[in-house]
């Protein structure tokens, strides 16, 4: 019961991060701030959802698989975010200033 409640809370907070990340991606002014918003959804949002699913997993094998998925996405996500920002900077896109 406590596990279920915890799962629901983690899922909701995770979904909130995804929502905020998506909003940021749509509404932020330039590529750097959009990347910033996106990585929050990928890293923290997905992490929370993975933890929530781990609590419901039947076996440690599934827990390991879920953890592995998160680590892989962290690795790929941060790498890609760096590449996008790096390319943008090389093309002379200036960071947004108010």
């Amino acid at each position: 019961m406590i596990l279920d409640i915890l799962t629901v809370i983690l899922l909701l907070v995770g979904a909130l991060f995804f929502l905020a990340g998506t909003l940021g991606l749509l509404r932020f002014p330039d590529v750097y701030t959009r990347l910033h918003a996106l990585t929050k959804a990928d890293n923290v949002g997905l992490g929370l959802i993975v933890i929530a699913l781990m609590l419901q997993a039947d076996s440690w094998f599934v827990v390991g698989k879920l953890l592995f998925i998160w680590i892989l996405i962290l690795l790929a996500g941060s790498g890609v975010a760096h590449l996008v920002a790096n390319t943008a900077q090389k093309r002379g896109i200036k960071p947004w200033k108010k």
Partner: peptide
Amino acid sequence: VNPVLDLVTRLLVPI
């Protein structure tokens, strides 16, 4: 070669 891309490739290709 971008060092981050290089590192990610080295980590991911074996996986």
